[in-house]
């Protein structure tokens, strides 16, 4: 690709080097956020590549796994490398869509780096869901799947009540709990105990269905699907990482519920 020298100097007469670093930083910011809100690795790599190319990079090498991104960009005779460590993730599709739209705009309009940085800030902070829409997602998810798997309406309502518990755990406890596996176990244990208490009180007809409804909220189905997809698409390392993570999480959830059932058996 031809090098446009005019572009290199057009931002406050900065050196090409500093500008390359800035461009790479915003490309990584976008990539990082997409990865954190649940995007596939191939999407992240593709987006970073496109953004760099949009700003006139000749060659970009991206390597991303679920916990790290490494990029080297060749642009205007110079060559910069940055890496990023990615911590934690929480699936958020509205954010992913906003990021997707932003990266499309970057490629077509090539706004300067400050503008992009500001928009990124808005995307990462803004649009926090209120309690009510968030909670109704949990309620609908757990309640309808309890009925879906053969429970009665009463089982569905019990599952919803346990779903409220999981919602507040996710909102308050998740951020301050270090180990994700232990958190999943704790969550499912509490939900299991809750379901058993409802059963003892005679509120639900089939306690199995109540627990299944709540399992659906906790189960890493999306992680598992993404993992297999990564694996088949040739992103072997990310696929294996995600697969192991998902399987461990499923095991932790099963352990949590199993513990609750054991206890229920002891105190019966």
């Amino acid at each position: 690709m031809e090098i446009r020298t005019a572009d290199l100097q057009n931002m406050d007469g900065e050196g090409a080097e500093a500008q390359n670093e800035k461009i790479l930083t915003i490309a990584l910011d976008v990539g990082e956020q997409i990865l954190m809100c649940g995007g596939e690795v191939s999407r992240v790599e593709d987006t970073i590549q496109r953004i760099c190319a949009g700003y006139g990079a000749g060659r970009t090498d991206v390597f991303a796994i679920t916990s790290s991104i490494v990029v080297t960009m060749h642009r205007g005779g110079g060559c910069v490398t940055q890496t990023r460590r990615i911590n934690g993730s929480e699936t958020d599709f509205s954010r992913m869509e906003a990021l997707n739209a932003l990266s499309r705009r970057i490629c077509s309009e090539r706004p300067d780096t400050e503008t992009v940085q500001q928009e990124l800030k808005i995307i990462s902070v803004g649009n926090r869901q209120g309690v009510f829409p968030g909670l109704s997602g949990y309620l609908l998810g757990s309640g309808s799947f309890a009925v879906f798997f053969g429970g009665s309406v009463r089982d569905g309502i019990c599952a919803m009540l346990c779903g409220i518990l999981i919602f507040f755990m996710d909102r308050r406890v998740r951020r301050i709990w270090d180990s994700r596996l232990l958190y999943a176990m704790l969550c499912s244990f509490l939900a299991g105990v809750c379901a058993l208490i409802f059963d003892r009180m005679g509120l639900c007809r089939d306690v199995d269905k109540v627990m299944i409804g709540d399992i659906m909220l906790l189960i890493p189905g999306i992680a598992l699907t993404n993992a297999l997809r990564d694996l088949f698409m040739g992103d072997t390392i990310s696929g294996l990482l995600r697969l192991l993570e998902a399987l461990l999480q499923a095991a932790a959830i099963a352990c949590g519920f199993a513990l609750a059932i054991y206890l229920g058996g002891v105190f019966a």
């Binding site: 997602g137 309640g143 799947f145």
Partner: peptide, 21 residues
Amino acid sequence: LLQILTACLGSLGFGMFFHIE
């Protein structure tokens, strides 16, 4: 029919769960 209906509601719930617009 009940299963299809609850599948709809469940998917709706998960849509909200994952912050779909």
